[in-house]
Amino acid sequence: MHFLLFLTLCFASVSPYTEIHDKKFAASLYQELAKSCNNFVISPFLIETAFAALSLGSSRKTAGEFRTVFHLPQTHEAIKGRYKHFFSLFTNKGYKFQTASRISLLDELELAQKWQKQVRDIFNIQAEVLDVTNKNASAEKIDSWFREKTYNKVDKIVTPKDLNVETGFFLLSASHFGACWAKEFASKRTHKDNFYNRGKLTQKTSVDTMYLLGYFNYGQSKQLEAKFLELTFIEQQSSMVIILPDKIDGIQKLETKMDQVLQFRDMKTTAVDISLPKFRMDSHFDLIKFLQKLGIKQAFIDGKASFDGTVETDCDLPYITKVTQKTSMEINERGVEATAGPAHAAPPSVAPSYVKFKADHPFIFYIKIKEVVVYVGRVLAF
């Protein structure tokens, strides 16, 4: 019996909940991915949320590993309280952030009604029984659902071959993020400029680069040897933070301190002269090996995974056999995958002394809604 867990997405007031739970896992996941990837973007939010939902139906070592790796509370009641609050933060003011998840039960097992209600009410995950007698039709049904939920940004999620399992679960999740900058870049100013791939002077390339003068949240850290720039989206509830190492080849050293990077908040309104490359990236991860390195072991082993609270059975409990995430993101003059927005804001009439923020070498970025990190990634090379 198997779980097939698909985490799939398109592209991206401080509270005790948001400060405690999301940044540590985001930091550790980023560090594992950075060891074997170049450019990438991923949503730690989707991964953590899916496993938090599964944790409500888990026990013994499986539950313990989930609590440790995802920094979950010790009790189910505390987990439910955290995520009720978590989802209440997303108001979609000034941005589009939608998540859609569903659980498909294969063959003749029956979902535990208590767990089914909890994941629906708290995580907005819908459960169903999937007919796999016609694998082609079932795969197309799933793919069609995801195309609708992601504005046709995600096409193929599963194949008929993926449905070729004896008995188990599919958990499929999708998200879409779109927003316009509060201060747009002027398209007419975009032109080619240098970028030093992988932080090497010998790997210079020419890329489309956007330019903007204005007042933004900006900070510098001598300890981290990096500059921080926050670009807000309209309505100010969501933003992208870009972290640029002081040294051209400084990204690897900076990445060893990702927990501090994501916690850094010592920024203030500053006049900044911004140079930022336009970029689009598509990431596709099979995440089991990364999650195993972070400490999730039991959930992937037949006979050792303890998901006894998810199904109405006393034997043949399911285990997870696949965790996949697809992510696409495009950054341009208007924002993140944005098609409309306010007019470009002119620079101040009296020119102040601008701080230079020239992203011409590898940098880290993340998108947050209020204080919740929903996407994190890096640009290493073009």
Score class of each variant (00 low, 15 high):
361 H>A: 06
187 S>W: 00
141 K>I: 09
13 S>M: 07
207 V>A: 03
30 Y>C: 01
366 Y>P: 05
40 F>R: 02
71 H>N: 15
321 T>A: 11
267 M>W: 00
166 E>W: 05
38 N>T: 15
94 G>K: 05
62 T>M: 04
116 Q>F: 03
74 Q>D: 15
19 E>Y: 10
154 V>S: 02
59 S>Y: 08
240 M>E: 02
310 T>Q: 02
332 N>R: 10
331 I>K: 01
283 S>D: 06
235 E>M: 13
371 E>H: 13
353 S>C: 13
67 R>E: 07
197 N>Q: 09
15 S>G: 03
25 F>G: 04
73 P>D: 08
44 P>M: 01
59 S>W: 04
299 A>R: 05
18 T>F: 01
37 C>D: 07
313 T>G: 04
241 V>E: 03
240 M>G: 12
363 F>V: 06
116 Q>M: 08
310 T>F: 00
85 H>M: 06
115 W>Q: 06
164 N>C: 15
377 G>N: 06
112 A>H: 13
74 Q>L: 15
347 P>A: 03
322 K>I: 12
288 I>W: 00
73 P>L: 06
282 D>I: 15
350 V>W: 04
219 G>M: 02
238 S>G: 13
364 I>V: 11
142 I>D: 00
126 Q>N: 12
230 E>N: 12
322 K>D: 12
206 S>R: 15
213 L>W: 07
99 T>P: 03
204 K>E: 13
252 Q>I: 04
210 M>N: 04
358 K>F: 07
136 N>M: 09
268 K>A: 13
100 A>K: 14
189 R>A: 13
264 F>H: 05
325 Q>T: 08
258 M>Y: 02
126 Q>K: 15
206 S>Q: 15
32 E>S: 09
23 K>I: 09
180 C>Q: 10
44 P>F: 01
168 G>I: 05
24 K>Q: 13
135 K>E: 09
279 F>K: 06
290 F>E: 10
164 N>V: 14
306 S>V: 11
78 A>Q: 12
26 A>R: 06
299 A>E: 07
287 L>T: 05
159 T>S: 14
165 V>S: 10
159 T>K: 07
168 G>R: 02
156 K>F: 04
348 P>K: 03
268 K>L: 11
312 E>K: 08
207 V>C: 05
221 S>C: 07
51 F>T: 12
125 I>S: 02
217 N>E: 14
227 K>Q: 09
53 A>R: 04
108 E>V: 13
294 L>A: 02
183 K>R: 11
329 M>C: 10
121 D>Q: 07
98 Q>R: 14
17 Y>A: 14
165 V>F: 08
379 V>Q: 02
201 L>R: 10
238 S>W: 01
284 H>P: 08
316 D>C: 15
103 I>H: 00
9 L>G: 15
357 F>M: 05
43 S>N: 03
357 F>Q: 06
375 Y>C: 14
181 W>R: 07
131 D>L: 07
49 T>P: 04
292 Q>D: 07
349 S>F: 10
24 K>C: 09
82 R>S: 08
376 V>G: 05
130 L>N: 05
91 T>V: 10
332 N>S: 14
273 D>A: 08
257 K>W: 00
299 A>I: 12
81 G>N: 11
1 M>R: 11
88 S>N: 08
151 Y>M: 14
